[in-house]
Amino acid sequence: MIRALLALVVALPALAAGPYPIKEAGSRCRTGPGTSFSVVKQYALGRMVTLVCQTEGENINGNTIWDKTTEGCFVSDYLVKTGTNDYVAPRCNSSPNPPSGKPCALLNAAGIALVKEFEGFVPSPAPDPIGLPTVGYGHLCETKGCGEVRYKFPLTQATASQLLNDDLPRYTTCLGEMLGSGVTLNDNQWAALTSWVYNLGCGQTKSSTAIRRINAGENPTTVVEQEFPKWVYAGGQKFSGLVRRRDAEIALCKKPSSKQAYPKCT
């Protein structure tokens, strides 16, 4: 019995990996691999964490790996200095289910890049082309001076990316709530629709013909290709930037992918 226990103790370190230092102060460790999951705790800069296993999750600055620490929560691998963007620990047997009633709030790298390109980087609150105060990558200020933003102004591209990751689950969640139970989307279709919702807001898109047609069973790519060109106006004016954005969203939506993003994570 004692020999068996000693063998188990010796084997445990080989199953884990690390410890590795946390790269950013206030790094959040969550109940699952994405920013839509609840925060369990925050790690200080330089805090050493040991990884039990790793799994795929929400894309954070180009890294889709999330690390499960010995505290039982998940932190983006982007925030852990492992020395690589590849796996350094065993894969987790399974990922936690997304929050009840909500789709996975994931956006692939192509979707993140598209949103960033067309929103543009704004380090401090400033009016957008139609006069709405925004900051970062399209964050619409909710209070005077964007006081709700927890990051210091002027933002860096890194903190603007974190703000975008904070914001996106609001839009992916409302998109999922708009869609009927029979709808299936790959990650490129999901990213294109999310970019559209992020740009226009949940209210306008919820009542749109595009959503109605998708829910009626029409091919989502065909619907996007036909309906998105209608959404190029802001403040009653046609904007060339919106024309280019809709074209880019259509192109992304049409790009084949075998990875399903809605109604479940893969």
Rank of each mutant, 00 (worst) to 15 (best):
P154D: 12
Y151L: 08
T194Y: 00
Q237T: 13
W231Y: 09
T266N: 15
C265F: 07
I214D: 08
D187H: 15
C202N: 11
R170T: 15
L252P: 12
A160N: 11
E148P: 02
S208E: 02
G145H: 09
L185I: 03
F228W: 05
G138A: 07
I211S: 01
Y262D: 03
A234R: 09
D166M: 11
T184K: 12
A191L: 11
F153T: 13
D247G: 05
K264L: 11
A191I: 13
S207K: 09
L164G: 00
R213T: 08
N186C: 04
E148M: 04
V232F: 01
G131R: 04
K230Q: 13
Y137G: 00
V224R: 02
D166C: 02
L185N: 03
L242I: 03
T221M: 13
A210H: 00
V243R: 01
K259P: 01
T159L: 14
F239H: 12
V135N: 09
Q162M: 13
C141V: 10
R213M: 13
W231H: 07
K264Q: 14
T172Q: 14
Y171I: 09
V232W: 00
A261E: 07
G131P: 05
A192D: 04
L140Q: 09
N199Q: 11
S161H: 07
T172D: 10
Q237C: 03
A234Y: 01
L193G: 09
R150H: 15
K144N: 13
I250C: 05
K255S: 15
L155T: 11
G147A: 14
I211P: 00
G136H: 00
G182H: 10
L164C: 08
L179K: 08
P129Y: 00
T266W: 03
V197K: 07
S257I: 07
A158C: 01
G235L: 06
Y233F: 08
E142K: 15
K254S: 15
K238C: 06
C174S: 15
E218T: 03
K152S: 14
G180F: 04
C202H: 08
Q162F: 15
I130L: 06
P256I: 01
Q260A: 11
I130Q: 04
D167P: 08
G145E: 01
Y233M: 12
E177F: 08
D167Q: 13
V149R: 03
F239W: 15
L175A: 07
E218S: 07
G241F: 04
V223D: 02
C174V: 15
P129C: 00
Q237V: 14
K206P: 00
N215P: 08
T134I: 10
P256L: 06
K255A: 10
G217H: 07
P129D: 00
Y233I: 04
R246V: 09
K254I: 00
A191S: 13
A216L: 12
G182N: 13
V232T: 14
T134L: 02
Y171M: 06
T194Q: 04
S195E: 08
Y137D: 02
M178V: 13
E177T: 12
C265T: 12
D167K: 06
L175M: 11
G180E: 05
F153W: 05
T134V: 15
K255T: 15
F228G: 00
N215T: 03
T134G: 02
A160Y: 05
W190L: 01
G203P: 02
A234D: 09
S208T: 05
Q237D: 14
S240I: 05
G201C: 05
R150A: 13
C141M: 02
G235P: 12
L163G: 12
